[in-house]
Design a binder for these strands. Structure first.
Lengths: 254, 254
DNA sequence: CTTGACCCTCACGTGACGTCATAGCCTATA
DNA sequence: TATAGGCTATGACGTCACGTGAGGGTCAAG
């Protein structure tokens, strides 16, 4: 594969502007492998992969200077980075969910007769940059590349039967939790099952406290998730959310 | 409610900096209702609501100038705007999913023996700003505030029984699609059922083509969604995705 | 009164490009 | 060969949304 791309071609391919590619060349972030006689920039496949990494890091709010340092570190590993991007992107989705929830709460509040039933600090849920930073720090400290790689490999390596077994385990845990709704979300019995539920989730991906908590919220916010859990037992989505939140705040944090 | 907040208090409450609040005051985007004798800024509850709107629009990549124009338009309606934010935030989640999918494809490609089995243009899926812009335009043109308001009201107004009925309809459609997997995802019979499925989704929120397409992808990417659909019939998640993509590309576009 | 936390205005700096000017290069067509 | 259209290059000022720091006043508690 010796194909080379001009700036226009790569700009179209990647969605960035020619100006951006000039800029990245100028600051040393992405230098084309080749320059023609007339100094035209020519990018090869390694350049394309590097640009992809730049764009992922950029998407995840790293500064260009930071990105350069990371990519130029001798210990940099593309696969590790991709796994890290994945985790952060999943968390971004949870962040979106938090904002959506704030929309809904604000709407409900505005539609009520008393406009200010929503507490002032609820207006900005999801916008809390400090909280987001704390989570990023948490992932950085707790993120175990080997564990992520392992769980990702688990998905790829699961046979149909294994996947079916894992799915059934999830159903069983969920049903058992439904049976214990009368015990209360924070009861030892329910919390024991939530622990199993969390372990079940981690069959698919590492799920730190904040993410697990956000997932519980997602169960109540996403109509299809809600429908799925209500099917086990009415009120189960909210119950799961409460139990998961408690578990995340009390068992998963340290 | 006559409580007033100082810049520090509001900064902490909202997650923005004091400097940002100064800046917004200076450019006229968010002027505090009161100034003390000593010119301290004092924000009231209307100010808090306006800041929330500013932050939503900012989150959704509107420029501050644009935000000011929108908010100061005599026809501006907070509820309409909140519904619009919601739609855009949901789409953002789909965008995240697209990026996650690109991560996975890149990983799979790097783990294979032939490093460049992944086509060059697949490297940047999810980064395509033009495509994102096209979608935003599509929503702007097709977004019907009354329809959004209606579907949102529908959720709030649904009784437990009605919600249960809607849920069951979803199950029935999904099961029927599962029964017709042998017909092919693009067959008239399946597409007829997909049409019902789309209508079912719109019980919850308006779902334009791109969003519907992204939802199909989500079914194959999110383990819990996949598990849910596999439960009806093995392979159903991917089948739904294919059928929904076809439907979005051929029936929902105009 | 002193101290520490908070408030104000002013203004230069920063990062990541956007925009434009100027000029050469490449390919196809008349 | 000339022309047109699309592409390339470098250089440099401008834009946006604050970050940072300077200098000075205010408020509450000890």
């Amino acid at each position: 594969m010796s194909k080379h791309y001009s700036v226009k071609q790569l700009a179209e391919l990647s969605g960035v502007t020619v100006r951006t590619l000039h800029h990245y060349d100028q600051i040393g972030l992405l230098k084309p492998t080749l320059r023609s006689e007339k100094k035209y920039r020519l990018y090869n496949s390694d350049d394309l992969l590097r640009l992809q990494q730049v764009l992922f890091f950029r998407e995840l709010d790293f500064s260009l200077n930071q990105i350069g340092e990371i990519l130029d570190d001798p210990g940099f590993d593309t696969k590790d980075a991709l796994l890290d991007h994945r985790t952060r992107l999943v968390h971004r989705q949870q962040h979106m969910t938090s904002l959506i929830r704030t929309v809904d709460k604000t709407l409900a509040s505005l539609e009520g007769e008393n406009h200010m039933t929503l507490k002032d600090n609820n207006l900005y849920e999801g916008f809390d940059q400090e909280k987001i930073d704390r989570w990023n720090k948490e992932v950085d400290e707790k993120y175990d590349p080997e564990k992520i790689a392992e769980s990702k490999s688990n998905i790829g390596k699961m046979s149909k039967d294994q996947f079916e077994d894992v799915r059934k385990q999830g159903d069983q845990v969920t049903a058992a939790i439904g049976d214990l709704m009368g015990k209360g979300a924070t009861s030892p019995e329910v919390q024991e099952l939530i622990k199993l539920h969390h372990a079940w989730i981690e069959n698919f991906y590492v799920c730190p406290a904040e993410m697990y908590k956000g997932l519980g919220q997602l169960y109540t916010e996403n109509p299809e998730f809600t429908a799925f859990y209500e099917k086990f037992k009415p009120g189960l989505a909210a119950f799961m959310c409460e139990a998961m939140t408690y578990h995340a705040d009390n068992m998963l944090r340290d």
